[in-house]
């Protein structure tokens, strides 16, 4: 079987659009609301989840025939926890500021529903390469929603992007909307993303 057969391509791209973990399956919402007040943490969070999902998927799919099904959740948790700890230490070593901003939410990736969902639903039944692609796809599907929400919130809430203040518009009160810095607004923006996504896909179907 070739590395990028038709099925593998679909495994990679489906979570980006129609099977998007946040927008279609509404998983991983808590962290999407908590870390998206600025663009930079959103990007880092998205990447961390992508890396962890991909490698956890690979490891579990390698082990899948040896895991007794009664204790599979514990084993999955151990694998995920290991990876999360590694990522968390890496962030602390090389991107300390961002890891402070993300605070507990890196650790909480362990309990991210997207991860457990992919492990249970995909990695337990598929080979390592497909699982890897699936993990990358799901992680990126999660990441792009975070980036969109983080972009809107940082632009309208603080008139800056990636921490750089944007000239001209930063003088306007409109771009210092306090509501945007609150998680409540992240939920509404998430809702808007879902709205746009569904409207777009309904039109494609027709």
């Amino acid at each position: 079987m070739s590395l990028f057969s038709k099925r593998n391509k679909e495994v990679l791209t489906a979570p980006l659009n129609l099977d998007n973990p946040v927008v279609s399956q509404v998983l991983g919402i808590c962290s999407a609301l908590a870390v998206t007040s600025q663009l930079e943490p959103s990007i880092v969070m998205g990447l961390s989840v992508t890396v962890i999902t991909a490698f956890a998927n690979v490891i579990i799919s390698l082990l899948r025939n040896t895991i007794p099904s009664r204790i599979r959740i514990i084993i999955q948790l151990v694998v995920v926890a290991t990876l999360v700890t590694i990522v968390s230490q890496m962030l602390k070593a090389y991107a300390y500021d961002v890891s402070v901003q993300l605070s507990v939410y890196v650790g909480l990736i362990i309990s991210n529903c997207i991860l457990m969902g992919r492990l249970e639903a995909f990695a337990m039944m598929n080979g390592p390469w497909e699982s890897f692609l699936d993990g990358i796809g799901s992680g990126l599907g999660y990441a792009w929603v975070l980036v969109v929400v983080g972009f809107v919130r940082e632009l309208l809430g603080a008139a800056s992007l990636l921490g750089h203040e944007i000239p001209f518009i930063s003088e306007s009160d409109f771009f210092h909307n306090g509501m945007m810095t609150m998680p409540a607004m992240a939920l509404i923006i998430c809702g808007c993303v879902i709205w746009a996504h569904r409207a777009y896909n309904d039109r494609e179907k027709k």
Partner: peptide
């Protein structure tokens, strides 16, 4: 919305 978005105003 006004109250939380622009508290100073």
């Amino acid at each position: 919305f006004l109250f939380f978005a622009w508290p100073t105003k």
